[in-house]
């Protein structure tokens, strides 16, 4: 039995050339992508083992804490990674990174005036379980200014990288928070072609899963490309 991933619906993604997000102008191919029939090179991808990750890799509150806890609103973020046909994607490597509560990244190239938090690294990673589910703990990232137009600000967001079961599923995206007034103004979110696709990037508050007197919770489900059995292969 062989299988393919269903053709990617490129209308669901930002086009390469989006002048409102200025950096894309010189970083967008001019030629059309060339569509290929998938082979094993596209339907396989690296398999990650639980022992490659540490027990605190998905706890951003504790995984870089030195002499205290990071400053910020305590959050739990969870969700399911499934494919477009609703099948849970197990063993997917989910990697997340974000700014600290003041909107500053722990990165040697980030020069924003907001201070580094000595107790916050800002990255985490996990493998999805048998139901495709993931969970991590963090603090809410702050918004920050960036050089696009001179007064553009990023809404609070968490970056997600997902490595699923096939190379063709590889995806990087960003999660936003319900109700953030900067969402409607964000040039990077405006690259997303439809309102429903933007909605898919906005995590909703998950009140029943709040931890009383401790943390709020957001839910963010992720859909990867789905595979279909190839019934007839002409040998």
């Amino acid at each position: 039995m062989t299988f393919d991933y269903a053709q990617r619906n490129t209308d669901l993604h930002p086009p390469a050339y989006t002048p409102g997000y200025k950096t894309s102008v010189l970083r967008s191919p001019r030629n059309a992508l060339i569509s290929i029939q998938q082979t094993l090179s596209e339907t396989t991808s690296p398999v990650f083992r639980p022992e490659e990750l540490g027990p605190r890799d998905n706890d951003l509150i504790l995984n870089f804490a030195k002499e205290g806890l990071p400053i910020g609103e305590r959050l739990i973020v969870h969700g399911q990674v499934r494919d477009e046909f609703g099948r849970p994607v197990r063993g997917a490597l989910v990697e997340v990174w974000q700014a600290n509560a003041g909107g500053r990244y722990r990165h040697k190239r980030d020069q924003y005036i907001a201070p580094i938090d000595p107790n916050f690294g800002g990255c985490g990673r996990m493998l999805t379980d048998a139901d495709g589910r993931y969970v991590f703990r963090t603090i809410k990232p702050g918004p920050y200014p960036w050089r696009n137009r001179i007064n553009d600000w990023r809404p609070s967001h968490i970056h997600f990288s997902i490595s699923g079961e096939g190379w063709a599923q590889r995806l990087i995206t960003q999660m936003y928070f319900e109700g953030d007034p900067l969402i409607a103004r964000c040039p990077i979110l405006k690259t997303v072609p439809t309102e429903s696709q933007v909605r898919g990037l906005i995590a909703l508050q998950d009140v029943p899963n709040f931890v009383a007197l401790d943390s709020r919770c957001y839910r963010f489900d992720i859909t990867l490309r789905g595979r279909r059995q190839t019934w007839f292969e002409n040998v």
Binding site: H13, F85, G86, W97, G121, T173, Q174, V192
Partner: peptide, 25 residues
Amino acid sequence: HFDETASQTGGPYVHIGLAPQQAGF
């Protein structure tokens, strides 16, 4: 059927998440 989640740029600080040693920690 669900629509695939929209892609977004990895941004300038992609190293923090995918190669933290290169980000400097």
